[in-house]
Write a protein that binds this DNA or RNA. Structure first.
Lengths: 220, 220
DNA sequence: TAGATTGTTAATCGATTAACAATC
DNA sequence: TAGATTGTTAATCGATTAACAATC
């Protein structure tokens, strides 16, 4: 069907920045749909998010042709296309390691389900927590990680343990066979290339904000 | 002291990517210090974080000269310099709006204090929560926001409310006089240019991971 | 001194924007 | 049809890397 050099597996590498904008497009499109918009345009999407229209079109062009010249994009169609690109057109069972404050907050976070993520199990080492349920999610002992990961087909792991334990937990997740890790611990961890890693450090986000405030006269 | 075109306020705009790497350098330096390293080098820092040595030196060069040719960087000195650049050499009183799962997790998050952030007050609209304390932090009614922000010199606000309420809360924060907002709600909010905004969407982080996993054969 | 490492300039690489023919 | 908007190419802009004189 599609011409060009296309060959499915030999697609050019996509910059991270493009992928994260894709998520933003998806979020805006879902809002537009909630507000009964049937179609949108690169200009509208760009205006909503502070990007140029050219950038919106270019980003989408990495993955194919989704629009209609003279018309724009059908919102629901583009949502479907982006979810397919991101891999969220199916459900991802997730395991969370660490049932402290942050872990429990993530267990209760409603935003995940809506985007195709489903927290299947939690893990901890503290006896008082193991066997309990939080937000309807059962807490297992970390020593059962491999067994449960397999049984529940868990593909992604979220690390929500203190920094010093993070690398050990990461290793256990890799051994258990997960394919991707989201790390909330404030440390750099290293994984084999075959396992994907995304890190989120909440303190770093505040540092970015602090910098922006201190330098606001200069940079905005 | 410093020559060059330098004039303090006319510094070239610093790319966001540079600022976020600065936070990573800071984190690694703190680990090095914890492990009794007195000095480090651009090569070592780069290796720890997966950057080139040239990038480390170039990033720091935006802000001044912090190293010693032939020797490298004194860790504690560079930590001090980066904290000053990021504005975390002083304490930032923070207000958190929304005391649901995520808000409470942030209230209890130990990583903030260590980096110069201090959660001073929490706000909600739910009667059962107002007046309570979580993790030693008092919850006020949102209608007291302006008063408390002034009294406690709160400069940064964290939005941890559901999406539909986020823009309203943002407006209240701006009216109350905060200078920066960290938004955890999964919506795009808009603020006057005079108020800085950083957004963190947890579902988006998982989408990035999902994309990376689905495309791992191609891009890693 | 010789070896190491910085700060900085120039070269390379990649990402964003502008422009426009093709299309509805 | 005229107006709108796409997908895509070429031009611009910015960020990363390589190289090296200066320095300890």
């Amino acid at each position: 069907m599609a011409e060009r050099k296309n060959n499915e597996t030999s697609r050019d590498t996509v910059p991270d920045a493009v992928v994260s904008r894709l998520s933003l497009y998806l979020r805006e499109l879902q809002h537009l749909i909630a507000n009964d918009c049937e179609t949108t345009s690169s200009t509208q999407l760009g205006r909503l998010l502070g990007f140029t229209d050219a950038q919106v079109r270019k980003d989408l062009a990495y993955f194919g042709q989704f629009g209609y010249p003279g018309i724009g994009y059908r919102c629901s169609e583009l949502v479907g296309a982006i979810r397919k690109i991101l891999g969220t057109d199916r459900s991802w069972p997730i395991g969370i390691i660490g049932v402290g404050n942050l872990g429990r907050a993530l267990l209760g976070y409603r935003g995940f389900d809506q985007q195709g993520f489903e927290i299947a199990a939690a893990f901890d080492t503290v006896d008082d927590k193991v066997g309990q349920e939080f937000e309807g999610i059962r807490v297992y002992h970390i020593s059962d990680l491999e067994k449960i990961v397999e049984k529940m087909s868990i593909k992604l792991g979220i690390i929500a343990v203190p920094g010093p334990a993070a690398q050990d937990v990461a290793n256990l997740l890799v051994d258990a066979g997960v394919e991707g890790v989201l790390n909330f611990a404030p440390v750099t961890i290293s994984l084999p290339d075959s396992v994907q890693l995304v890190g989120v450090d909440l303190a770093i986000q505040l540092e970015q904000l602090s910098f922006a405030v201190v330098n606001r006269a200069t940079n905005s």
